[in-house]
């Protein structure tokens, strides 16, 4: 059994904890993710969801505990090295290069995959790069936005741009932190379709407040509260869980 698990287990955290000035934002969390899942993490504001995935992506370092990716301990790896391994994170509060064009934003991500040797760092593989950028923009539904200033995009489109940047990095594990926040209903529908389509090749870790999206997309749901994992299961199991109803759904 251990062997099978080792093959399909993409991500594991062991007793992962983060303390901010005495506040335990994440408390000894053991979290497992199998390859090919669409996992949703839900929980009230301040539950520690962002903190947990930030430690997975290497954005912040844990106070204690370990992170394993494909069975390898990556706790000591910095964020940029984890990106190279395929762990990609999109920010809850959009973080894009507002003063650069949309094209440049995505190109920065796309060229990371193309920059393999010393030579490719110095020359610009213009055509290939442009193709990659265009593909990523088309995927999120912004095919014509390339020449616009990223900061001039409406908020929802800035979120989509972040998703495009993440896609251009060719992730194996894509962490989306509240991607539908601020999107219009039809944009949410489009993004849901995209996430489902992508999930054939990419494992998804999704922090999401929109329960309709969660129920529709997730293969499994993790519920967090006050830094702990409260429950875990299929969407319907979790929905029926009494503690979850009390804490999260407010029923």
């Amino acid at each position: 059994m251990g062997e099978v698990a080792a093959v399909t287990r993409l991500l594991e955290t062991r007793a992962l904890s983060k303390t901010f000035d005495g506040l335990e934002a994440v408390r000894r969390v053991d979290f497992r993710l199998e390859t090919g899942e669409i996992r949703a993490i839900i929980g009230p504001n301040g539950a520690g969801k962002t903190t947990l995935v930030s430690m997975i992506s290497g954005r912040i370092s844990p106070t204690s505990g370990r992170v394993l990716f494909k069975g390898k301990d990556v706790t000591g790896l910095r964020a940029w090295d984890r990106v190279a391994l395929g762990i990609v994170y999109t920010f809850q509060v959009t973080s894009i290069f507002k003063n650069l064009t949309v094209y440049e934003n995505v190109a920065l991500a796309a060229q990371r995959r193309l920059m393999t040797g010393a030579l490719s760092r110095l020359t610009r593989p213009q055509r290939t790069l442009a193709e990659h950028v265009q593909a990523a923009l088309a995927q999120v539904g912004l095919p014509d936005a390339g020449d616009r200033h990223a900061g001039s995009l409406p908020y929802g489109h800035q979120k989509l741009l972040e998703v495009a940047m993440a896609l251009a990095l060719k992730p194996e594990l894509l962490i989306l932190d509240e991607p539908t926040q601020g999107l219009a209903p039809e944009e949410i529908a489009a993004l849901s379709r995209l996430i489902r389509a992508l999930s054939r090749g990419v494992t998804m870790l999704l922090i999401e407040h929109n329960m309709a999206v969660v129920l529709e997309l997730a293969t499994k749901v993790t519920v967090m509260d006050k830094g702990d994992i409260l429950a875990e299961g299929t969407p319907s199991e979790v929905e029926a869980h009494p503690d979850v109803q009390k804490v999260y759904l407010g029923l």
Binding site: W80, F91, L100, R112, T123
Partner: peptide, 27 residues
Amino acid sequence: WLTRSPIGRVLVAVRENEERTRLLGYN
């Protein structure tokens, strides 16, 4: 040449938003 190369693009990215650049895989 440098500023128009991929390196130059990353330098501008570091200037504009260092944390984002880190999470795009650059040190």
